[in-house]
């Protein structure tokens, strides 16, 4: 494994939208920026579809909880979006000041997904928060997160509302592939910066395969002066990864995008159900 495997994340872009908890996403993004020594940019996208629909003569909003029907107007929606953007900007400034990181705030108007993907370069890390389905009554209408994860050219981190805890392990699903090594390098740099334990999750295989995988990881770890711990998985589906996260009391999970747990369109556990941050390496 060469030093070129070592990722250099130059910028953290956090997507602040109307459907998630900006505070949790900004906190997670600022912490990651601090860890990786990267610049933090918050992107607030005014959803053009929402603005258009508000302009229609029959525009109505149906309450998520109460099911009441309220009239909508473009002015009111614009006002709401501006206010939300201002709140997010103020929040970002406070967090950046507290954590002493460079930050910027950008507002764009358009399709949320396209704006997010369009603004991120391959060396960036895009942070998006999971739409909180429990808060939204369990209803998930679009697979925006899934599409961003699949299409992004950069690393994507999905965060939930759970606040991270000190000294918890960073877990990484390891495979002896280029993507697997990039995942390991990223997880290592996350763990090293916060002095967290690093746990390598080994996919099921023969003893010889495990030994080979572990040896390659150890060799890499030695050159980077890192302590590793290994955990063998029975399966590599989402449930097995979640179980490992729980048992290891993991702080975050780093996973290559080609992992089976992300490929199954019906198994959305990792994208939807977990509070723990999941970092997907393309």
């Amino acid at each position: 494994m060469s030093d070129s495997d070592q990722p250099v994340t130059q910028r953290i872009i956090v997507l602040v939208s109307d459907s998630c908890d900006s505070n949790a996403a900004l906190e997670a993004a600022a912490r990651m920026a601090g860890r990786l020594g990267a610049e933090l940019q918050a992107l607030f996208v005014e959803d053009v579809n929402l603005l258009r629909s508000a302009g229609l003569p029959f525009a109505r909003e149906i309450g998520l909880t109460s099911a009441t029907v309220r009239p909508m107007s473009p002015e009111a929606v614009e006002q709401q979006l501006r206010a939300q953007a201002e709140r997010s900007r103020a929040l970002l400034e406070r967090i950046a000041q507290r954590m002493n990181i460079r930050s910027s705030f950008r507002v764009s108007r358009g399709n949320v997904e396209s704006e997010a993907l369009g603004s991120a370069r391959p060396e960036d890390m895009l942070i998006i928060c999971r739409a909180d389905h429990r808060r939204r009554g369990g209803s998930r209408l679009s697979d925006r997160e899934g599409r961003i994860v699949s299409a992004a050219h950069c690393t994507v981190m999905l965060v939930g509302e759970r606040q991270p805890e000190e000294n918890r392990a960073v877990l990484v699903l390891y495979a002896n592939t280029a993507r697997g090594r990039r995942s390991l390098a990223l997880a290592a740099s996350m763990a090293r910066d916060a002095a967290q334990p690093l746990v390598l999750l080994l996919p099921p295989g023969s003893e010889a395969e495990h030994d080979r995988l572990a040896a390659s990881a150890r060799e890499w770890a030695q050159t980077h002066n890192l302590q590793l711990r290994f955990r063998e998985l029975g399966h590599v589906d989402a449930a097995a990864l979640l179980s490992a996260l729980r048992q290891e009391e993991g702080d975050s999970l780093v996973i290559p995008r080609d992992a089976a747990a992300l490929r199954d369109p019906h198994d959305r556990l990792l994208l939807d159900e977990v509070d723990t941050p999941v970092v997907v390496v393309p």
Partner: peptide
């Protein structure tokens, strides 16, 4: 079917 800050709307 579009998500709004407080619910849904149709367009």
């Amino acid at each position: 079917l579009i998500q709004t800050p407080g619910g849904f709307t149709f367009a």
